[in-house]
Design a protein around this nucleic acid. Structure first.
Length: 191
DNA sequence: GTATGGATCTTCT
DNA sequence: GAAGATCCATACA
């Protein structure tokens, strides 16, 4: 049986949630994909948007656990996060990569790429493939329109490494991915 | 295969 | 006015 993850799942340390989200499924309409890569962000470290406190942009980050935080990156891309921990705490898990499961033909139509591994292998790519946009900011990941369902179904080891694309707090090992999965956004660092 | 720069716009200083 | 949790096309090796 699979069902949407409930708020208590998100109301835990954000690093635990990031690790446990691997293998769960993101669903939007009839399109879905398995989470294979995540990153944790928390207000205590400067790479997180919430580090500067509550602003119009970051308000969602301090909201209820299990809420979607969608924001625009580099003026072009929409990035999907799952808000974690208590109300009033700015913490979220960035969904960085998915393994496409259903409605793959629709994803190809949205993405206009040739290879399946190019559909969702990056945080800006997967939102485009799923049709997730900024209008879904501050919506529920429990009741939809975008849902994350569990329990996790995968047999792979979880690899921990450092986060990607940031300039502050780069040393924190808060990136989690499934070992050997071809749909991750970047290869893993050498052992 | 790796390297570089452009696109494009919100947010905060 | 500058920077940013990115992606893609293009150039070169």
């Amino acid at each position: 049986m699979s069902r949407p993850l409930e708020p208590p799942f998100y109301e835990r340390p954000v690093q635990e949630v990031a690790r446990d989200l691997l293998g769960c499924i993101v669903v939007h309409g009839s399109a879905s994909g398995r989470i294979v890569e995540t990153e944790a962000y928390h207000q205590i470290e400067p790479a997180c948007h919430a580090y500067v406190g509550v602003t119009e942009r970051t308000r969602t980050l301090f909201g209820a656990p299990g809420t979607a935080y969608v924001y625009r990156s580099y003026g072009i891309h929409a990035l999907l996060n799952a808000v974690c921990e208590d109300v009033g705490t700015g913490a979220a898990v960035l969904i960085r990569a998915l393994e496409p499961l259903t409605d793959i033909d629709v994803m190809f139509a949205r993405r206009r790429v040739a290879l399946e591994r190019e559909l969702c292998s990056g945080p800006g790519k997967l939102t485009q493939a799923l049709g997730v946009g900024l209008q879904l900011n501050d919506t529920s990941l429990v009741d939809g329109p975008v849902r994350i369902v569990g329990p996790a179904t995968h047999a792979a080891e979880v690899v921990t490494s450092t986060r990607i694309g940031i300039t502050k707090a780069v040393e924190l090992p808060w990136r989690f991915s499934l070992a050997g999965n071809p749909h991750v956004s970047r290869p893993w660092p050498r052992p």
